[in-house]
Amino acid sequence: MTEYKLVVVGAGGVGKSALTIQLIQNHFVDEYDPTIEDSYRKQVVIDGETCLLDILDTAGQEEYSAMRDQYMRTGEGFLCVFAINNTKSFEDIHHYREQIKRVKDSEDVPMVLVGNKCDLPSRTVDTKQAQDLARSYGIPFIETSAKTRQGVDDAFYTLVREIRKHKEKMSKDGKKKKKKSKTKCVIM
């Protein structure tokens, strides 16, 4: 069974824990209790493949930012979460993405942009803004509501699919490099 290491990042209060708990335990946590770091595991079937999701729910508070490099190193894919009623959390996505790329030393890291709290009427981040940002990053965008469960499975499952595509691409690139290195030079 394939294991996928997913990391949920975003500013404090955007609903990272609520999304994760909704996926794992099928219930909505409405009281806000700032996370330092929590880890969850769940076995699911995605596109006919049974897999184990190892999900790291991270601290959004700035005082825990020193811990970010460590979990970013171990993560295979990242859910970059903002709240649709919090423009600052949307603007912060850029910083999370840049930090992930720096730590992973790669421009090509599996990510999904997630606009959470889409059940709320007080939207300050337009869907088109988020779609445009995701398009500019070359990553999928999904709106979710941890409260109603809308888009929750889709967000995590899409990230797994992005990781699969990335692994497939990397193995193809690896095979191309191996083929090239088999060419021999004969000096007579």
Rank of each mutant, 00 (worst) to 15 (best):
K42Q: 10
D33P: 03
V7F: 07
Y64R: 13
D57S: 01
E49F: 05
D54F: 02
K42H: 12
K42I: 10
V8N: 02
L19G: 14
E37W: 03
V14I: 14
S17H: 00
A11W: 06
I21P: 01
V14Q: 13
I46T: 11
D47I: 02
T50I: 10
G60K: 04
K42L: 08
H27M: 15
T35C: 00
Y32H: 10
D57M: 02
T2C: 13
D47N: 12
V8L: 09
K16S: 07
H27N: 14
A59G: 13
T35F: 00
T2Y: 08
G10D: 01
T50F: 06
R41W: 04
D54Y: 04
T58W: 03
V45A: 12
C51E: 11
E3L: 08
D30A: 12
Q61M: 10
L53M: 10
Q43I: 06
Q22L: 03
V9S: 04
L52Q: 14
T2G: 12
I36R: 03
G13A: 12
G15A: 00
V7S: 08
G15P: 01
D38T: 01
G60N: 04
I46A: 11
R41V: 09
E49H: 09
G10A: 07
V7Q: 07
V44Y: 10
D57H: 01
N26C: 08
L19F: 12
E37G: 02
Y4D: 14
F28S: 03
K5C: 03
A11I: 14
A11Y: 06
I24M: 15
V29W: 14
T35Q: 01
I55F: 07
V29N: 09
A59W: 02
L53S: 07
E49R: 11
E49M: 07
G12L: 06
Y64V: 13
S17W: 00
C51L: 10
Y64W: 11
C51G: 10
K42V: 10
Q43V: 09
L6Q: 02
G60H: 06
G13I: 10
E62Y: 08
K42Y: 08
E63V: 04
V7I: 14
C51P: 13
T58Q: 04
I24S: 14
Y40N: 00
S39V: 15
V8I: 14
E3R: 06
C51R: 09
Q22S: 14
D54G: 04
I55D: 01
Q61C: 13
L53G: 07
A11E: 10
G10N: 00
G15C: 00
T20L: 08
L23K: 15
C51A: 09
S17M: 00
A11C: 13
P34N: 03
S39Y: 04
